[in-house]
Design a protein around this nucleic acid. Sequence first.
DNA 1: GTTGACGGACGTACAGCGTACGTGCCAGTC
DNA 2: GACTGGCACGTACGCTGTACGTCCGTCAAC
Lengths: 214, 214
Amino acid sequence: MLSRSRIVDAAVDLIEREGADAVSMRRIAAGLGVGVMSLYNHVPNKAALLDAISESVLSKIEFTDDPSAHWTDRVRVQARAFRQIAHHYPRSTMVVFSRQLHSTAGLLPVERALSTLRDAGFEGSEAVRMLRMFVAYIVGSLLREVGVTPTFAPVRGDATTVDVDPALFPEVSSLAPYLTSCDHDEEFEFGLELLVQAMSVRAGKQAGRRSARG
Amino acid sequence: MLSRSRIVDAAVDLIEREGADAVSMRRIAAGLGVGVMSLYNHVPNKAALLDAISESVLSKIEFTDDPSAHWTDRVRVQARAFRQIAHHYPRSTMVVFSRQLHSTAGLLPVERALSTLRDAGFEGSEAVRMLRMFVAYIVGSLLREVGVTPTFAPVRGDATTVDVDPALFPEVSSLAPYLTSCDHDEEFEFGLELLVQAMSVRAGKQAGRRSARG
DNA sequence: GTTGACGGACGTACAGCGTACGTGCCAGTC
DNA sequence: GACTGGCACGTACGCTGTACGTCCGTCAAC
């Protein structure tokens, strides 16, 4: 029996195997051994299916939040949880990023994050701003890692040959070795640590007089 | 007479007017008062055209770098220049973000940024890491602003009504006013300032004695 | 002036797309 | 038995990208 979740799962599989461009209602139906129009009994249209895919991927984020841990560690854990799911479904993640979702699938992560930020001493608009900044960094990082967007390492994939004019681009040329290679894990952790430290400073300023929560 | 740049310009116009989904070779040709296949005399295929669009948009970034200014201000200026062009071509920016570009169109910004980072005291891999982190933040922010990706304000557009269960999501519920509204300018500047400050701290550590910004 | 070559504009054609619409099968309820 | 509603499915339409062939204007060589 066909069902919405079976369709979504098949679509995610197809995306991961052959890329987002390969996704068509016909291909999904064929993968399920089913007629094309049968899908429309469970999904109103393709756009809604893509939204459902986004929701499905987002809901797979594992948030094992430990309220007793220090808030900085909780921030790290949550950021990595986000990243891990993106690595597990890289091509579907691109679909998520390319769609505006109005669902509540992302509510739980937001709730957890805000709770953590409150423990860090951020209140009101400051907490929301911190959250948005963090999400921006994570999304931007994942967009680079997933490979669809700018590693801004504009040299050839072959790390040995660099076809950049040193006279025109001295910095790019001299830093070419670092620009061509990219250890995504290190890169992500570097930015994460920087942000956490920046948040710590800000938290100290804000909560300076008042007592921070344990 | 048809030309590659005329085609690209027409495509960008079409994207901005009617969205990326509306872009088809036929529509572009019609907009130019030209037959569909004529386009293929100047562009090998649609994918290449989209790449050309990305390149065109990126090349429009205005970098009026002032080497005499403090590096923190130069960072700010460069970040805002990036953002400004994204605001000028919001829908085309999404096309840029959704494509992996191997062109050298983004080289000049990278060169300027690395030069600025060098002045800040960052060398080698540290400079590249800083650049990548900054780009990640900017890209993530723009992705939110351009509206295609998660403002993570999962409540309704109507700011007065919030359909979130306060029992299940107390933080989201209590911060709803801040989550529903989003002043993109303030939001961007907030994260920008946080990053610049974080970089200042790091620069101080790395370069030893250096004038901190007041 | 004639001829030949060539590049660009264009029409036709084909496979694939999303999906509106209609048809038929089957389970459940009077 | 008749009726109803949900689901699987086929057909069909208008759209897409683009391979291929054709036509025409320009220019060089004779």
